[in-house]
Design a protein around this nucleic acid. Structure first.
Lengths: 362, 362
DNA sequence: CTGTTAGCGCATTCAT
DNA sequence: ATGAATGCGCTAACAG
């Protein structure tokens, strides 16, 4: 236990120096682990530090060195297992290289994202990883602000074309295409796309849909493209009624799937772009008294323990969440270590885990 | 966009002052929002700041004020929805009161927890919330270190009796008792307790079990007590074979439930103390070719969207995760605001959500 | 109302 | 090898 010096606040390096009977600089050198210090004085300083319970003030240190040894991370929603996994990848590799990480969740709100960026800038983090990027050109001022201050930025999961930054993503388009192809191979032609762009009403044409998608999250639009790719390859006509638009909430998803299920020529399969969309879809099935894969087939993004214990177990797409984060941290730390930013897009592979939620249409 | 002054690093308050043609202090006062500044100079300073893209250096500010306006949060596992929810409660209320929050996840590792505490101390956070507390007396040195430095600490979910701190928890014991009572009321007498203490082998006696439990996570032992309470009230003898011990992993859980299922007098119901234990249990059921609630009844902790879309839907205990975090932040911020620490235990109510995983034993 | 001055705790020249 | 002095960017007394 630290000796109680009637002082106010935690012990400073000066107090340690005094206790050890040496100059400040000597104490600073041994405690900071730099410069030369004789073995004897070194011992005395260490003993004094131990006795007083000294811990370096990271603020003061950063103040004079100009670096904080900490990475700032902005995620869209820390409650989403996808981001939680990415985060773990980031913190594992950054801590392994001696960096702390401070994470801020925007809960999918742009204002929050801007605020988060400012917090990180103000706290002088050495680098920033963003897994929650706005897409619109006018919405990236806060990211540019960081870059202008020479704070390296790496993006994860969501690409921002107008920014030209190192970005780590998965093969969203391929993954979506593979999933939908799987559905098609099983014989489906009426395939719902659940969790689309947040437009007010159904797109009149395929072109409208793509135009709208382009204004939204990058990963979302890639998944939509993959869906369309698969349809095209199989010469299945695009039907705007089979794509969900509007709020991305589980509740709205349930409504939309219910709608697609009530269509004269109803959907026989559904492709979900997110785990929450899967639960929303399942809820709609239950209400409609339908069961999978008998009445309807189902493939969703973001595998998780629940998907595998469902009865029947769900065929899902698994993302390399940990690697996504690890890679991002790696790239960022390399830049901080002096490497030139490559402004590359690093694509990691996802994996379709085949289980039992796909069958031939009834 | 900030003007590019061939300078190095972001603009400082001195540069803003120079640009505005005023003294440092005047610039500092208007930018820092304290003291009196004439309307005209104020305008000039603001304009200069805007022009240079000035942002206050939080490090420097904290350096001289001694406060950081940030809360440190240590959680056991940020990938666990329970903690993610608590975290949101914390960040919502702390940001509403002008505090940033920096969160560190220990991934249930004590060394990580100690490291996390040190990071927070070094970064001079104003207060700390811990939702991941070690229990053993010798393991709380890092928490005590914070307290010794006059950093207020509030605990969430896990109580540490030896510390006498403000603590926010739910009625774990009651919640568990209610769940097990529900099972008993349905006619069950062979009820498994899944996710128990990490002892090497099954406890010989009830006393052994409790002794071991006392050395573990507080919420876990409370849940065990609730289980025993319910058994006692119904005069059902305690059977050590019906409690899982060992690693708290989904995999081991599956093994243990399989074991209980293979017993001559097998379990007819299972009470799970965590969501992961539920998926582990479901996996065991599948392998055994059993289904609920026909062959076995089931109640688990930590409700979530998946539990409600299972077929049949699961009866689960819902914790007020957001409130838990919000309350903790509130208590902590009140202390920082000058209130005396009450060293109270704040108990929030959980709720049993009855669905369809409980039936009479077959 | 405004400008000058002195720290906050540490790292880092520069003499010694 | 060690100590004294200076500065990081900001707040806060203090004069004026």
């Amino acid at each position: 236990m630290p000796a109680d010096r009637g002082q106010s606040g935690p012990p400073t390096i000066s107090e340690v120096a005094a206790e050890a009977g040496v100059g400040r600089a000597t104490a600073a050198r041994t405690l900071g682990g730099y410069g030369y210090v004789g073995p004897e004085l070194r011992e005395r300083v260490l003993a004094a530090a131990e006795k007083l319970g000294y811990r370096a003030n990271a603020l003061a240190r950063s103040m004079s060195t100009g670096v904080t040894h900490t990475l700032g991370v902005i995620v869209a929603d820390i409650g989403n297992p996808f981001f939680a996994g990415v985060l773990r990848g980031i913190s594992d590799t950054s801590r392994a290289r001696g960096f702390d990480t401070i994470v801020l969740s925007t809960y999918e709100d742009l204002d929050e994202e801007v605020a988060a960026a400012n917090v990180l800038i103000d706290k002088r983090v050495d680098g920033v990883i963003i897994a929650s990027a706005a897409v619109d050109r006018r919405e990236v001022a806060h990211i540019r602000a960081a870059i202008d201050r020479d704070i390296p930025v790496v993006l994860v999961d969501r690409m921002v074309p107008s920014l030209d930054l190192d970005t780590v993503v998965i093969d969203n388009r391929d993954a979506a295409r593979e999933a939908v192809e799987t559905l098609i191979a099983a014989g489906h032609r009426r395939i719902g796309f659940v969790w689309g762009p947040p437009m007010a009403e159904a797109p009149a044409t395929r072109r409208d849909l793509l135009a709208e998608a382009a204004r939204n999250l990058w990963s979302d639009q890639e998944r939509l493209r993959g869906y369309l790719d698969a349809l095209d390859d199989a010469r299945i006509p695009f039907d705007p009624e089979l794509v969900m638009v509007g709020d991305k909430t589980e509740e709205h998803c349930t409504q939309e799937v219910a709608r697609m299920l009530a269509l004269p020529d109803r959907v026989t399969a559904v492709f979900c772009t997110e785990a929450e969309a899967v639960t929303g879809t399942l809820r709609a099935l239950r209400t409609a008294g339908l069961s999978y894969p008998r009445d309807i087939s189902l493939i969703g993004f973001d595998d998780n323990p629940w998907a595998s214990v469902m009865d029947p177990p769900l065929t899902m797409i698994e993302q390399p969440v940990h690697d996504l984060g690890a890679k991002a941290a790696e790239v960022l730390l390399d830049i901080l270590g002096g490497a030139d930013p490559r402004h590359e897009t690093h694509v990691l592979r996802s994996r379709l885990i085949t289980r039992a939620s796909v069958a031939a249409p009834s």
